[in-house]
Nucleic acid binder design. Structure first.
Length: 209
DNA sequence: CCCGTGATTTAT
DNA sequence: TAAATCACGGGG
């Protein structure tokens, strides 16, 4: 029998609470198909994520009901991308979770690159080793050419930006390290909540700041 | 360690 | 309208 084509994850997968989704995303494959005649397929396995819990979470862009042109996609149904621009030069990509009007999401923090490494190296000029290519939320957006044009993109449509079902079940807790999120010290009671998840000992996880 | 860079938020 | 902030990366 021929090998089964890897399938693009559908709406059911994303319409869950962000902590469950965060853990389920570990080991799945983020795929970017770049546009144009020289378009390429770039991909990597998700190895590090953070959950953002919406209205109650002081680290979330939607804390206390904030709704602006920037974060509008977080207010939509699960399965969309939320891509934002920060620090004057960086993009970061989130996967919107749950249902419309529950503005929660999962930040993709690191990938283990698997396809299109030459193209990633071209975009990531400063990366010396393969473990520098996608080991941070803005690094992976640079490597995969993800920017605001992909904000609110439907990840379940199987075009341009999608997530493939590379792993049937979530990793056991014994293989996941759980700890505080990076760079949210301003978030008071929420700064230290253990909402960051990564594959233990995976060399592509972002370095501690 | 420090800086770039600019959209967004918060203060006045 | 001005100032501070920021889910970061790169260079020294």
């Amino acid at each position: 029998m021929p090998t089964v084509m890897a399938s693009c994850l559908g709406q059911r997968f994303f319409r869950r609470d962000p902590v469950t989704l965060a853990k389920a995303l570990l080991g799945q494959r983020l795929v970017r198909v770049t546009p144009g005649p020289n378009g390429k397929r770039l991909a990597g396995l998700i190895v590090e994520v953070e959950a953002y819990l919406g209205l109650k979470d002081q680290a979330a862009h939607t804390f206390d009901g904030r709704r602006t042109p920037r974060n509008e996609s977080m207010w939509q149904h699960g399965g969309l991308a939320y891509v934002y621009f920060t620090y004057g030069m960086h993009h970061c990509m989130n996967v919107v979770a749950s249902v419309a009007d529950d503005p929660v999401a999962v930040l993709i923090r690191a990938l283990e690159p698997t396809e299109g490494l030459p193209q990633m190296r071209k975009r990531r000029k400063a990366a010396r080793r393969d473990t520098d290519l996608c080991s941070g939320p803005a690094k992976l957006c640079q490597a995969l050419a993800i920017d605001r044009k992909l904000d609110a993109h439907d990840l379940t449509a199987g075009r341009s930006l999608l997530i493939e079902h590379a792993r049937k079940t979530s990793y056991p807790a014994s293989q996941i390290t759980r700890g505080p999120r990076v760079g949210v010290s301003y978030a008071k009671d929420w700064a230290d909540k253990p909402l960051r998840f990564y594959l233990t000992h995976n060399p592509h996880v972002s370095k501690a700041r």
